[in-house]
Amino acid sequence: MLDDFDIAEEVRRHPGIVAGAAAVIAGVAIGALLLNQRTGRRRYEQLMDRLDPRGWIDAEALRRRFDDISRGVADGVETLGDRAEELGDDARHGAGKWFKRGKKALSPSRRRRYAKAARGYAHDAGLSARRYADDAGRYARDHAKEGGALLAVATIAAAIGAAALESRRPDSHVRRIAKF
């Protein structure tokens, strides 16, 4: 009779009884943990404070740092635009000198046309520089968010690893909490 007993089959036959028994055992364990704690600051609260990742990282400092980075990128965009404008001016000046050196004198209308084309090239270069800088800023913000998420996951993994290492020590506080 005892050889025919299969635990998995009994659980399949009586799922409500198994779930109820598991709930009762979990309730008894939680009750024992709560009733076993002493007055004052409780061990459970101490453990939860140690495992709370919000206290590990200064999120406000990280937020300020990322704001500084985005502000620096925006300032870089302005500097890049000014530099593109200066390069356009230099190109326009060089083109004017090149056309003045030729054997034939340029007519004023042709000179205006060349100057307009040079301004257009400078304008287009400035727009491209601004667009590239905006893309770089967007890329930096996205990677900052991903980095924050990875940092949170790494912190949680470190907390789990620290709890596992501490539970192996003979004078472990984690092991004492588990023994109620």
Rank of each mutant, 00 (worst) to 15 (best):
I25G: 00
G102N: 10
L51D: 00
R83A: 13
E10M: 07
G40P: 09
F5S: 09
T79Y: 05
A162D: 15
D75W: 04
A22N: 01
L51E: 00
Y44P: 07
S128K: 11
G88D: 11
L2I: 10
I30E: 00
A152C: 02
G20P: 00
D171T: 13
H123G: 13
A117V: 12
H93G: 07
D4S: 12
R111D: 15
R141C: 02
D49F: 02
L80C: 06
A125R: 06
R175C: 02
Y121A: 15
A140N: 01
I69H: 05
E146K: 11
E10A: 13
V174E: 10
A61Y: 01
S167V: 09
S109E: 14
Q46E: 14
K100W: 06
Y132P: 02
Q46D: 14
D75M: 07
S109M: 08
A74S: 14
I177H: 08
L2H: 11
D82R: 12
A21S: 08
A118M: 13
R43M: 07
A140Q: 03
G102R: 15
I156A: 15
K104G: 15
A163M: 08
H173A: 06
D4L: 05
L34V: 05
L62D: 14
A158I: 04
A91D: 12
G94A: 12
D52Y: 00
S70K: 04
Y44L: 13
S107C: 10
G148V: 10
A133W: 00
A144H: 04
I69G: 03
A152E: 06
Q37V: 05
S167P: 06
A125M: 09
G40E: 07
R130F: 00
A74I: 04
P15M: 04
V73C: 06
G96P: 06
I177W: 02
G102H: 10
L2P: 15
N36E: 09
R41F: 03
F5I: 14
L47I: 12
S172M: 00
Q46C: 05
